[in-house]
Design a protein around this nucleic acid. Structure first.
Length: 591
RNA sequence: GGAUCCGUAGCUCAGCUGGAUAGAGCAACAGAUUUCUAAUCUGUGGGUCGCAGGUUCGAAUCCUGCCGGGUUCACCA
């Protein structure tokens, strides 16, 4: 049973019977300073009914007491009616959850959603910002799935363009045939190395030119390195064999590196799009837009759209020379996505520096009459910043993803051995645990904050394992498992249903939080916000730990009470497992 | 300058479809382990919810203006 809904309709009935009014009923959880589980605020009725808040509240409460079995007691403070639910209600709720195999998973709605995330450039390795993107994307995919949708996880790899040619050219000039094997570097790091080398070389050429009297802008355009790179890009577009072979070789290295990282951090995709295949798309859409008057052509031949009515500006969609710009491609790939899959919605997990781009993209799609335009959503997220500000690759302040994961595993290892509760673990099991804890801490850290907010990462203080953290939640799960193991070793077998017994206040609280899980899943899905799930996990774990400190389970003499408690905490552990899974976090049975 | 997002305790963040005395964690201090994992629990101190108006019985929450910060406004991606 859903107690909140039942209670709401009972109050609705009371209002109708007592005062002959039809009113939408909103309940809220009672604040912990007051006695009660749910609170109904009667202030809004006062004017209408011309009675005192206290009288109205008392009348409703009395009605509920005589006409339903939900209420154990109540109190009225000013205009707040605080309701304490009857013990049997808690058992009904608990048994309802126990019987629901799909608790917290909404029914299938026969709709599909595409979630695009990660979308790396193949010229440098992943950094902390990419981790936030990857964790957000894969978590949102899971959350949307739990909300009843089919999900297609996609990645659009930016594997072509000037920036890719930069690392290619530098490798060609200075690489001496170096390979991941010969250098011992992961392929993505190797490519990144040459990207940095290019930048240095380019800068020094510029400096020389500027010393020779050239302006900075001209030097930027005329440095031999950048000219060589532009030539290389043209060759690539013409399909020059040597260039394409180099491109293929280096990209393969990078993909191998990325795949290693993705596997380590537990991120995957159903479909990968490559810009090298899609960058020419979109030109036919430009033709379409010109034909139906949505776009217009300027004297020099460039094509534009006027979005002033949408509060935006004029926007270029095709250069005068007929080549594509960034948005041209995106018009094409968006059409492609909706043609490739029977999806009704598409989500782009992309940083907030592209807010404007997506506003424009969606506005254009709408003007072109694409019916799917309303199902497009840009999940915009804020930067991960360091104490000294933004990460800058040029200043070497970028926090590398692989390095960070390795450090976290190291920290997890040392802090586990300090506490040492894993006697009997094989080395392999221990390593697996360290990785679970490390990634749990990292993922939780990056997901607990609302996506659109920027966040601060301080490399000097390693990510916490105590308090509002992933390991705290993992620990809570391990603690419960420990009790359940003890119960199993004593041969205690749980029934499918729980028999009503005397119930502690902390137990009612725990059931209350448990019953709120589906609402958290729904809210997280509606808002595309893993932070909602993270906060829920913390709330549940905290409530359990409080309970744990107050009530003993294995020392409880009454067998029925003990069984009830075991069923309750088992449900808590399962809910923690399900909820953390939505964040991509694994929970160990021991730690 | 236009657009947009953010501003809550020393720090990091919840709360934001309006409700009671604004909550957590970290840090500080004081406690709890003969008892199921102390990566835990309990308590203390710490706040003009950026500022000023407005709407309302009631505003951290909604509206307006201002202040501070980020992002963006390329025939780059």
């Amino acid at each position: 049973m859903n107690i909140e809904l039942s209670l709401k309709s009972a109050i609705k009935q009371a209002l109708s019977a007592l005062f002959q009014i039809e009113e939408e009923v909103v309940l809220q959880p009672t604040k912990s300073d007051f006695e009660g589980n749910y609170t109904y605020v009667v202030f809004p009725l006062v004017k209408q009914l011309r009675k005192s808040p206290v009288d109205i509240a008392n009348a409703i409460a009395e009605y509920l007491k005589t006409n339903t079995t939900y209420i154990k007691s109540y109190n009225v403070v000013q205009g707040f009616l605080n309701l304490v639910l009857a013990d049997e209600v808690w058992f009904d709720v608990l048994n309802g959850i126990l019987a629901d195999k799909n608790f917290g998973v909404l029914p299938k709605n026969n709709q599909s959603v595409m979630v695009e995330y990660s979308s790396p450039n193949t010229n440098k390795p992943l950094h902390l910002g990419h981790l936030r993107n990857n964790f957000l994307g894969s978590s949102v995919a899971k959350i949307v799935e739990a909300n009843g949708y089919e999900v297609v996880k996609t990645c659009l790899v930016n594997d072509r363009g000037v920036h890719i040619c930069k690392s290619m050219w530098a490798y060609q000039q200075f690489g001496n045939g170096e390979t991941p094997e010969s250098s011992g570097l992961k392929g993505d790091h190797l490519a990144g190395k040459y990207y940095v080398i290019f930048d240095k070389h380019y800068k020094s050429e510029m400096a020389t030119l500027i010393q020779g009297g050239m302006s900075e802008d001209e030097a930027k355009k005329n440095a031999p390195a950048i000219k060589a790179v532009q030539e290389m890009l043209i060759k690539w577009e013409q399909g020059d064999e040597e260039t394409v072979a180099l491109w293929r070789k280096m990209n393969d290295w990078v993909f191998a590196g990325f795949n290693e990282t993705y596997q380590k951090i537990g991120v995957s995709f159903d479909k990968t799009y490559y810009e090298s295949n899609t960058y020419l798309l979109g030109k036919d859409i430009v033709e379409e837009g010109l034909a139906n008057g949505v776009f217009f052509k300027k004297e020099n031949g460039s094509v534009w759209i006027d979005l002033k009515e949408e509060g935006l500006d004029e926007k270029l969609v095709l250069r005068a020379d007929g080549t594509s710009v960034y948005i041209t491609q995106d018009l094409g790939t968006t059409d492609l996505k909706f043609a490739d899959y029977p999806i009704s919605k598409a989500i782009w997990v992309v940083g907030n520096e592209q807010d404007y781009h997506f506003q424009v993209l969606f506005a254009i799609m709408k003007k072109l009459g694409r019916t799917y335009a309303d199902g497009c959503y840009h999940l915009s997220y804020g930067m991960v910043e360091l104490p000294e500000g933004k990460m800058k690759s040029r200043e070497g302040t970028v926090v590398d993803a692989d390095d960070l994961v390795a450090e976290m595993i190291e920290t997890a290892s040392s802090s586990t051995s300090e506490r040492s509760k894993i006697d009997g673990f094989t080395q392999e099991e221990a390593n697996q645990l360290f990785q679970q804890i490390a990634l749990g801490a990292l993922k939780y850290f990056l997901l607990k904050v609302e996506p659109k907010k920027k966040m601060l990462f301080n490399p000097a203080e390693s990510i916490d394992f105590q308090g509002n953290t992933g390991p705290f939640i993992q620990y809570t799960h391990a603690r419960i498992c420990s009790i359940l193991r003890k119960a199993a070793s004593q041969g205690i077998v749980l029934d499918e249903k729980v028999k009503p017994v005397a119930i502690e206040k902390t137990e009612a609280e725990l059931i209350f939080v448990l019953s709120d899980y589906p609402a958290a899943v729904k809210k997280a899905g509606d808002e595309y916000a893993p932070s909602v799930i993270a906060n829920y996990c913390y709330e549940l774990a905290k409530t359990f730990n409080h309970y744990y400190s107050q009530v003993s389970i294995m020392n409880e003499p009454d067998g029925e009470i003990q069984k009830f408690r075991l069923a309750l905490i088992k449900l808590v552990s399962e809910t923690i497992r399900k909820a953390t899974a939505l964040l991509g976090i694994e929970v160990p049975n021991r730690m």
